[in-house]
Amino acid sequence: MATYLEVRGLCKSYGEGEARVQVLRGIDVSLKKGEVCVLLGPSGSGKSTFLNIVGGLEPADEGSIRVGDAVITDLSANDLVEYRRAQLGFVFQFYNLVPDLTVTENIEVCQCLSANPLPMDDLLHSLGLWEHRRKFPHEISGGQQQRCAIGRALVKNPGLLLCDEPTGALDYHTSKEILELMEQVNREYGCTIVIVTHNDAIKGMAHRILRLRDGQLVGDDVNPHVLPARELTW
């Protein structure tokens, strides 16, 4: 398979002078189309920053990132919007659903951005949200809200799905359901998925396991024995 995400020499720091903190120190990563990648590391290791830069949410200080054919580190602010619109799906720890839109409508929020979106009904069935499609976020559980957030990210049929602690706010069973859903999404839609997590157990379902510590990539392993998500335990 061809390389879909290529990161070269990525550096990022915050602050100035003595307060300057080097968050990323020359990261090099390549991911193939359709790979599930888990990015592990302790708090402050630079996981979220890496995700944000790949997602075009903040600029890199140095280095380059290529997603598909686009070198996003060269893109203007407007082009970055188009990049996110066309190629990216985001899943956050706290869902960030629009509180006064129903489940379906929350997904429609991103469906309308795509020229070739996934069929809504199929997606709702896949997400297990069909019965809840007319409910508002406050009427469903945290797991269902996260399913909805995943649906919102997927509906555009993005090439790259970036998940920042997607199970961080969920209990064990709900977390496993969400991970199974991601596995299913990857299988059905073939998108590349990057999951940032504290949870070491999630690495079992990934094709690639990246480990960050103090802004440096300290591990980049191919998982020879990918486990189904339902078999993960922690």
Binding site: V81, E82, A86, F90, F92, F94, L97, V109, L113, K156
Partner: peptide, 14 residues
């Protein structure tokens, strides 16, 4: 704020 951030991250234009 969070909704706006999510929408912008999802590709909505300002």
């Amino acid at each position: 704020s969070a909704v706006i951030g999510t929408l912008l991250a999802s590709g909505w234009r300002k």
